[in-house]
Simulated assay, not measured.
Amino acid sequence: MYSTSEMAKKLSVSTQSLRNWDKSGKLVASRTPTNRMFYSHDQYLEASGKAKYKKTGSDVDAVSGKVVLITGGTGSLGHALSKRICGHAKKVIIFSRCELKQANMKQKFANQTNMRYLIGDIRDRERLSTALKGVDVCIHAACMKRVETCTYNPLEAIKSNIIGSTNVLEACIENKVRKTLLVSSDKACSSATLYGGTKFVAEQVFINGNNYATRDCLFTATRYGNVFASNGSVRQLFENQAKEGKVKVTHKDMTRFFMSMDDAVDLNLFALNNTIGGEIFIPKLKATTIMSFAETFAPGIPVEIIGLRGYEKIHEDLISDTEMLYTVDC
């Protein structure tokens, strides 16, 4: 947010010009409860004619020389992000609950001297506050993500995905973490499951959490579909089922969005490089039928149609009709 004098300086105009523009409707300022005028960064970009998002420099610019903390860092995305950034970041901190997964990750990255491992739970606000001291960038990937598990354990899903995300936001504001990114899901769009609902709320907490922070702390999110090589992915499921002689599909017409792990890492780093706070970065992806996916990764294996689970959608969305009104192609 910019005061009248700050905005005038950035646009190289007088404060009186800004007041005149506000009265004429050319550039209308927002107002505090005490009637002080202020402007958003979006208004500055629009008034100055500058592009919002521009891919420049290296994809690791946002983390180079920085201390980066990844919640849920022992997962597939955490491994891939660590591999990409550990040679550029000052320090990479893996924050997660499972000792065994951390021990395995330590062995995999044994030659990386700038990686640290902290046991903790995003439900524990105090532990997060301690872990985030001195952190410049936080990538929030920890969550409960299995649809059926969230449905069967709704209160636990709320504690992890909503309250846990709120804890991350508040701890980042407390520690003045410069950039914080939420890794979300296409199931948050027009959500029909409890999991999707919790991720939708987490998105809203993050993009609107900028209202609680100064310009020193930026909160943003990414939203995308299934990642080929992630733990528990449908690819792994089909390959395992193929060994047993039958692949199970919920609906023959079902489609899903898929992307590679490298593309997922690219998207998250692009978001960190380009965020001005309050966005959801969404990739352009083509939907693939589950039947085609089964034929690719379990060729020649019989398929059994088992029916939809709960409120599972046949077709996922990445952007809702309402969101299209506010979408920028970058």
Score class of each variant (00 low, 15 high):
L18H: 09
N20M: 07
W21N: 03
W21P: 03
W21I: 02
K23R: 14
S24N: 13
G25D: 13
G25T: 11
K26A: 08
V28I: 15
V28Q: 12
V28K: 15
A29I: 05
R31C: 03
T32V: 09
T32R: 09
T32Q: 08
T32N: 08
T34Y: 07
N35W: 03
M37R: 15
F38N: 09
Y39N: 01
Y39E: 01
H41D: 13
H41W: 11
H41I: 14
H41Y: 15
D42F: 11
D42H: 13
Q43R: 01
Q43F: 01
Q43A: 01
L45V: 04
L45W: 01
A47F: 08
A47I: 05
S48F: 10
G49E: 03
A51E: 12
A51H: 07
A51I: 04
A51W: 00
K52Y: 08
K54C: 09
K54F: 05
K54S: 14
K55A: 14
T56W: 00
T56R: 11
G57L: 12
S58C: 09
S58H: 13
D59T: 15
D59M: 15
V60M: 10
D61A: 11
A62W: 02
V63W: 00
G65Y: 11
V68R: 01
T71K: 05
G72D: 05
T74L: 06
G75N: 10
S76Y: 07
S76N: 12
G78C: 10
A80N: 06
A80I: 06
L81S: 04
S82W: 08
K83G: 00
I85T: 10
C86H: 10
G87P: 11
G87C: 10
H88S: 15
H88F: 11
H88Y: 13
H88T: 12
A89R: 01
A89F: 03
K90F: 10
K91M: 12
I93L: 12
I93R: 06
I94D: 02
F95V: 02
S96L: 05
S96H: 07
S96T: 05
L100N: 14
L100R: 14
K101L: 03
Q102N: 00
Q102F: 00
Q102L: 00
A103N: 10
A103F: 01
K106F: 07
Q107M: 06
F109M: 05
F109I: 02
F109A: 03
F109W: 10
A110T: 09
A110D: 12
A110Y: 13
A110I: 14
N111K: 14
N111L: 08
Q112A: 15
T113G: 03
N114E: 06
M115L: 15
Y117N: 04
I119G: 11
I119D: 08
G120T: 04
I122W: 00
I122R: 00
I122K: 00
E126Y: 14
E126N: 15
R127M: 03
S129H: 08
T130M: 14
A131E: 01
L132P: 01
K133W: 02
K133M: 10
